[in-house]
Design a protein around this nucleic acid. Structure first.
Lengths: 159, 159
DNA sequence: GCATATAGCTGTATCGTACAGGTAATTCTG
DNA sequence: CAGAATTACCTGTACGATACAGCTATATGC
């Protein structure tokens, strides 16, 4: 191995370490931010509820199993989340016409509205936080995060 | 407002939405990944323990309050985590010589070793996941994540 | 048409976390 | 410098998110 290759390998290792660090930090900060933002708009829509509503909005009504598979959650977890959402009138259950065992979950208008409000609040938050970033940097961040997620997701599903 | 400005504003809004989406996704995937990777090396060191050990390693021995403040956690949470870590021999408590109320927490060699192992495993994971990324893209991701975290952090602390 | 699989639910357990309240030590203040 | 306020930590308690195991009802394959 040439010195050059050695150096490149080493710096790659360092970069991977930085990514590991930053992702860990982001998860921690994201949690803290979510909790802190909770006062006003999040108290009304906790984490899982938001994810489920987003997913329903993005990919249409579907049954519990499909949600669970897509969100990498246990079916029982989704069942409970969905029950809570139904209690709050944010989603509706309907018997699956094509499968007597299943129930199809769809967001109610109220659910979509609530979801959109949280989404807007978060988007505003990012706008605030990234106020001094160039559009290019923002765009690059969004793109690279997207690629990272795709890579992580396909890796998660592969095994 | 000119059409041009309108367009730029709109696309910025879209970008912020993408960032919001991707961060939410990353948090979810990160959790799932952590849980999935758990089988081997994480069972032995759960999330909070890892963060605490990393922080101790990075910034030296310190008391519970300092850890709590830095990690945005309640003191009681840190107390319990530290107790668990102590039970497992990964950190050591010593009375703070400068303050009779406090206890200084330091990582034990075993703790550092455990932490390094998890860190290495995760870094390897990222190396695996990002195998087909260019060094430039990896570096850019690390940098932008760092900037995002810094922005999030200072925002979190400001209020 | 019976055996097996699947969809969803419920019981139970665990983990991470917060908040409230307690005790001991420290620091401030008149 | 003595009492008041603060701080550091711990403990009790509660909650939310999650998983796994086991149940029932329906579907599906041989």
């Amino acid at each position: 191995m040439s010195d050059d290759q050695a150096k490149r390998t080493e710096s790659d290792e360092v970069t991977l370490g930085r990514i590991e660090t930053e992702v860990a930090l982001l998860m921690r900060l994201g949690e803290a931010t979510r909790r802190a933002t909770g006062s006003a708009e999040h108290r009304v829509l906790d984490r899982a509820a938001y994810v489920i509503l987003r997913h329903l909005d993005a990919t249409g009504p579907q049954n519990v199993s499909a949600l669970a598979a897509r969100l990498n959650l246990d079916g029982s977890t989704v069942t409970r989340q969905v029950s809570a959402l139904q209690r709050d009138g944010l989603i509706a259950r309907a018997p699956d016409p094509a499968d007597g065992r299943g129930t199809v979950i769809s967001p109610t208008p109220a659910g979509l509205h609530r979801m959109a409000a949280v989404q807007a609040a978060r988007t505003r938050l990012y706008g605030d936080i990234l106020a001094d970033w160039s559009p290019t940097d923002r765009d690059t961040l969004a793109t690279l995060l997207g690629r990272l997620n795709q890579a992580l997701d396909s890796r998660t599903r592969r095994r």
